[in-house]
Amino acid sequence: MFVNSLNGIIYGSFLALTSLGLSLVFGLGRVVNFAHGVLYALGGYFFIIFLPSLGWGAMVFAPLVVVPLAIAMEWLTIAPIRNRDEIYTLLVTFGLSFMITGAIEYLWGTETTLIKPPVIFQGTVDILGNQFPVYRLFASALSLLVTGLVFVFIQFTAVGLKIRAITDDNEMAEALGINTRWLLTSIFGGAAGFAAFAGALGAPIFSVEPEMGMGIIIDSFLAVILGGLGHLPGTAVGAFIVALAKSIGGGYIAEWAIAVLFLVVAAIMVLRPRGVFGRGRIA
């Protein structure tokens, strides 16, 4: 139970990072980025590709490669349909995930790669009588730190204020002279960078395989829905609910974890259709 909860918290801290990007992009531009998961996967792949030559600096370098890719993606496919209904962004990015998953399998094959954590983090620590890998704790702390920094950025900087203004009322923000177009593109790139970073950071824990983006995108979507679409603190809470439901539920009834998770989500959706804080949108 304790180990399951701890693993849940670790997974939750990764999920918080990916779902936050998803929620930010949705709040800003009403863009539902299904391809967020494959950007996470690309982060993992670029990490293992750069690892032999760059060492652990690859963890920083992998996101830097994914960001321009994501910006190009936004320019070519999402910007042209901004005036259409938001479901179209979901359709387009769904097609993009098909493409990128296909490209990953084509270029790098379908096998699973598991890499060892760096030497200094290879040991285990004793927590209440359970041996726990150090790297998991380190990675989870790091992703929580990055998540915290994102919140600080949004809450306390001038750009963050603009982001909140756009999320609140897009037209009004534009009328006040905020360049929403430019901001959306950069936030899209930034969110992609965080997703790729999570993919790289998680590589020694969750392994790297072509379908890795699919698992994380479904959980991230659940987190975003639970938190209320576009509501950032709700998203973070949602991420931990999803991760804990999965790991604790999975601890009791093994492979049925996802069914338990869905029951939890369905129950919350019925009781609080606008998310845990009741402040998101329902459609």
Binding site: V32, D85, E86, I87, L90, I218, F221, L222, I225, L229, I258, F262, V265, A266, M269, V270, P273, I282, A283
Partner: peptide, 19 residues
């Protein structure tokens, strides 16, 4: 559950049910 929703939330929840 899903008929309470439409648009994006409907899309995502149907995906989850299928998974």
């Amino acid at each position: 559950v899903v008929t309470r929703l439409s648009g994006i939330a409907f899309a995502i929840l149907t995906l989850c049910i299928c998974q």
